Amino acid sequence: MGSATAQALEASSSALTAAQGITLDVAGDLFSATRLIGETSALSGALADPSAPVEARAALVSRVFAGASAPAQQVLTVAVSQRWSSAADLVDGVEELAVRAAAIAAPDADIEGELFSVSRLVADNADLELALGSRLGGGEGKAALVQKLVGASLHPATSLILTSLVRQQRGRRVRRLLSRAMRIVSTQRDRIVATVHTATPLSAPQRDRLRAVLAGRYGRQIALNEVLDSSVVGGLRVQVADVVIDGSISARLADLRHKLAG
Results as ranks from 00 to 15, higher is better:
L76N: 00
I249G: 10
S159G: 04
L24M: 05
D49T: 09
V146R: 04
D124T: 09
L76F: 08
A126S: 10
L24Q: 02
A58C: 03
P50C: 05
A215D: 01
R211I: 14
S153H: 12
Y218I: 05
E96N: 09
G234K: 09
L162Q: 04
G21T: 05
V75T: 01
R100I: 10
V227C: 01
T195Y: 05
R172K: 13
V78G: 00
S231L: 08
L136Q: 06
A19I: 01
D49F: 12
Y218A: 03
S164F: 07
A15E: 06
G141I: 09
V213L: 14
I22M: 04
S164C: 05
F116L: 06
G247F: 11
A261H: 15
D110K: 12
D124R: 14
A101W: 08
L97H: 06
T163D: 01
R180V: 13
V80H: 09
A98K: 09
N225H: 11
D89Y: 11
D190R: 12
G93I: 08
Q74L: 14
A56E: 10
A68N: 05
R100A: 06
R172D: 00
A46N: 08
A143T: 07
D246W: 12
R209T: 07
G137I: 00
A223E: 02
S81H: 06
S250W: 09
L60K: 14
A33P: 04
A254L: 07
I184C: 01
R220M: 15
V91I: 12
E55W: 06
S41E: 11
A126V: 10
G138W: 12
D229S: 13
V122K: 02
Y218M: 03
G234Y: 12
G262Y: 09
R167I: 06
V78N: 02
D242L: 08
L47G: 00
D127T: 15
V174H: 03
I22P: 00
R252N: 10
T158C: 08
P53D: 05
S3E: 09
V193T: 12
V122T: 07
L60G: 00
L177T: 05
D108K: 13
S248E: 03
V233T: 10
R176I: 10
R209W: 02
A204M: 06
S81C: 08
A18N: 07
Q169Y: 04
